[in-house]
Design a protein around this nucleic acid. Structure first.
Lengths: 149, 149
DNA sequence: CTTCATGCAAAACATTTGCAGCTGG
DNA sequence: CCAGCTGCAAATGTTTTGCATGAAG
């Protein structure tokens, strides 16, 4: 994970640059996004914010995340079976490894992805602006659980 | 697109093998999925089914698609901003090119994706069972529209 | 002060479910 | 026949929205 303090400062600057207000609720949400590793869901964020700032409403969490996504400071990961997850550390496209059993999401370092983007652009004539790459499988821990003996 | 008749027969066999009934509604839905190129949404499918079989309900469309997804005869593509899209022709993971302007989805032929899967598996220790790769951008037609002069 | 953000409750969606009645095999 | 399917309507779960109140700058 990148340095959480630096990420937080980055996000705050972006808000200030665009003349958005820094409210205590927003600050609490930014802190969580800047320092969370696990691609949290809105609910996870909501629960954590309430510890810092108990009166925060779900709607505010949604609004803040939408704002940050708009400003390219948060990456939104949607899934068909349930709620979105958010990445406040690397707000740009990158691959994910998703464990189908424990739902853990980690970021692998992958070379060779850029080559793919070039290839697809060349072959289809599309101008590529973003991508999404997810691998679904079983993490090492869950592989042991699946085959105990 | 693969031969729609062959795809339809394949889907029907799968249903028969698992002792599911072939109802007129299911048949109509299967036909649409087997012969559609454009990764239709449930609503698109629903509208088309109603032309063949006007009394069909949305719930039945959903149930049938869920069944086919379960049987690995349809690939479900979820998106954060709106409804899912479905691919009845290639019911296995493959990359998509999605035009952000006209929403068209095409399937590029891509070499070098398998290498990526091996790489990520080796580096993370995950056992990879599926993946999802989408490229977002502008198709050649929409690039012209965006920059008219 | 003024404008923007918050918090609540209601609305908006896509999707799922419960169930009575229908029908494919 | 009768287990499984359909169609309806109601429920679900997530996200968005309208609006009165409150607070940041």
């Amino acid at each position: 994970m990148a340095d959480p303090k630096a990420r937080l400062e980055q996000m705050l600057s972006k808000l200030r640059d665009h003349k958005f207000r820094i409210t205590p609720q927003r600050l609490a949400i930014l802190k969580i996004l800047a320092s969370s590793d696990g691609h949290p869901s809105v609910d996870t964020i909501f629960e954590k914010v309430k510890r810092d700032f108990p009166t925060t409403s779900l709607a505010t969490v949604y609004k803040t995340i939408a704002l940050l996504t708009e400003l390219n400071e948060v990456l939104q990961l949607g899934f068909p079976e349930g709620s979105n997850r958010y990445d406040g550390n690397k707000p740009y496209p990158h691959p994910h490894m998703i464990c189908m059993r424990c739902k853990k999401i980690v970021d692998p370092d992958l070379i060779g992805l850029e080559g793919l983007t070039d290839e697809v652009s060349r072959k289809t004539g599309y101008r590529i602006l973003a991508h999404r790459l997810d691998f679904f499988g079983l993490c090492p821990e869950c592989q042991k659980e699946e085959n105990p003996q």
